[in-house]
Amino acid sequence: MSLLDMIGPVMIGPSSSHTAGACRIGLVARQLLREAPASTRIGLHASFAKTGKGHGTLQAMVAGLLGFQPDDDRLPNAFAEAGAAGLSFEFHDTDLGDVHPNSAQIELTGAGGERVGLVASSTGGGVIEVVKVDGFRVSFSGASSTLLTRYTDALGVIARVASLVAADHVNIAALVCSREKRGGAAMLCIELDGPLSPAALNFLSGWPEMDWVRMVRPIMDAGDTIGGGDVPVLAGTTA
């Protein structure tokens, strides 16, 4: 956690884990779609399910899906804002097994039919960790730019992606990969020290092994004194 995560974020109350963290989970999920989200189904686990209502967790997640930052004054009225934006939502309680007590599963469908699912935890002080995307094990916090690719497992793909990232003059901070089975669907999750260039993203998306490629921009902008509710920049390309 950076200094500005420890003293911060500036946020709408009442809970950094249940409100600000929940909003940030929504902000990440939003970026995994290339189009506006049309509907979402959100499963709340353990403490999120038990005490989420009193903490505005539900409103905060919807606010994040709408692109609102945790300090956006519209956060308490996110349900009405969702109606205006054409986003329908439903919540249910769920058991996600052995994950942090403040966790949620978001299934998101875009206006054009794109779908994505993720499981993320809010670990305290507004910090989050995404632990699954489309069923694949991942690990990223959204504190820095993150590259996610879903691809077909094959010899050398990871090395080639790493080389491309290096050629784009971006350093890799952390990397997690997982696959269904040898030669099957796989996912690569790379936390970066900066964003990948649009040209590199486009090039990567053109590889035959790539099913989809997404660039998640930092959701915890270290320079922010006051966020102000800008919609995060979306970047994503598909093969």
Binding site: P9, M11, I12, T19, G126
Partner: peptide, 9 residues
């Protein structure tokens, strides 16, 4: 509106 330090609580 508050500043979490380190949490809101």
């Amino acid at each position: 509106r508050i500043v979490a330090a380190p949490t809101a609580g």
